[in-house]
């Protein structure tokens, strides 16, 4: 994995300061959605080759949740944003 992550609040930090939470899931289904849809949302995860969006927690620094775009092939991280910006951007 890329060993340096550019936290939008703290700057370049080593990956050891972060906790990886996993992929940014699809939007939450409606409460009345079919069981298969819910099963997919809760349990099934993609394992893409290439660009992947993940939640990272900067547990050793500012303790903010970040959304990080990482290429699983090259381990390059392209975009790192605070997770709160997803909500304001309407893309939660």
């Amino acid at each position: 994995m890329s060993s340096l992550v550019k936290c939008p609040h703290c700057g370049l930090r080593p990956k050891e300061e972060f906790t990886v939470r996993g992929e940014v899931a699809t939007p939450r289904p409606d409460a009345g959605a079919e069981e298969a849809v819910w099963f997919d949302h809760v349990y099934l995860r993609d394992n893409p080759r290439g660009e992947h969006r993940e939640y990272w927690h900067h547990s050793g620094g500012c303790r903010r949740w970040l959304v990080l775009s990482r290429n699983t092939l090259t381990h390059e991280t392209s975009e790192v944003v605070d997770a709160s910006t997803l909500k304001t951007g309407g893309a939660a």
Partner: peptide, 10 residues
């Protein structure tokens, strides 16, 4: 200031 870790200690 910087919030960071020294070894494994925050």
């Amino acid at each position: 200031s910087a919030m960071s870790q020294i070894g494994h200690i925050g």
